[in-house]
């Protein structure tokens, strides 16, 4: 079984938001709801400003609090390491939304179940990459199998120092970030 992960190379992100559009289109995400977002953080004092672009999505954690807090087992860790939701079992209690430190979930307004990024599992099963990865023109989003040393994600994580969001939450995310300044001089 593969061990899927995503690397977001922040050096290559241009903030075009195509990932958001592709995700919404691919997964029929309802209006005013999103499975992925782009954070633009500007720091410093003019004229010396520094901008960080950060794509955020479900981290498909190895230690997922949403799964542990789900009272019905609707949220579960799949064999490929991704965190998925069995919509039939979801009662819409919102415990998973409260438990997620990354605010990655929302309630589907039409059907009432909790929803979030699935790493486009339906596309993975068809041998394709997630829609956001496939559409990323700067090749900032990279997807692959951590257990495969020749995969792009494994190579990037070997070559560059990476970070994860909120490591103090102890969730062990599967989405890794490479910062602009992180390449060794």
């Amino acid at each position: 079984m593969p061990k899927y992960a995503m690397v977001i190379d922040q050096r290559r992100c241009i903030g075009c938001l195509a990932c958001i559009v592709a995700c919404k289109r691919e997964n029929h995400v309802p209006e005013e709801h999103y499975r992925t977002r782009v954070v633009e953080e500007i720091d410093g004092k003019a004229p010396k400003l520094r901008m960080e672009l950060r794509s955020e999505l479900c981290n498909h954690c190895d230690n997922p609090p949403c799964v542990y807090n789900c009272p019905t087992g609707a949220s579960y860790k799949d064999k490929d390491g991704t965190v998925q939701i069995n919509r039939k079992k979801c009662v819409g209690c919102k415990a998973c939304i409260a438990a997620c430190p990354y605010d990655a979930r929302y309630i589907n307004p039409e059907h009432g179940y909790a929803d979030k990024c699935t790493f486009c599992q339906h596309r993975l099963k068809a041998g394709k990459e997630p829609a956001c990865v496939a559409t990323c023109i700067g090749k900032s989003r990279v997807f692959g199998d951590l257990d495969d040393p020749s995969s792009k994600v494994s190579k990037l994580l070997r070559e560059y120092s990476s970070w994860v969001r909120l490591p103090e939450a102890g969730t062990h995310p599967r989405v890794f970030y490479i910062r602009k300044q992180s390449r060794p001089e």
């Binding site: 782009v38 954070v39 633009e40 929302y106 309630i107």
Partner: peptide, 12 residues
């Protein structure tokens, strides 16, 4: 610091 977020959910 200036923060702009594209794609926020009002719920969170």
């Amino acid at each position: 610091m200036e923060l702009t977020i594209y794609g926020t959910n009002a719920l969170t």
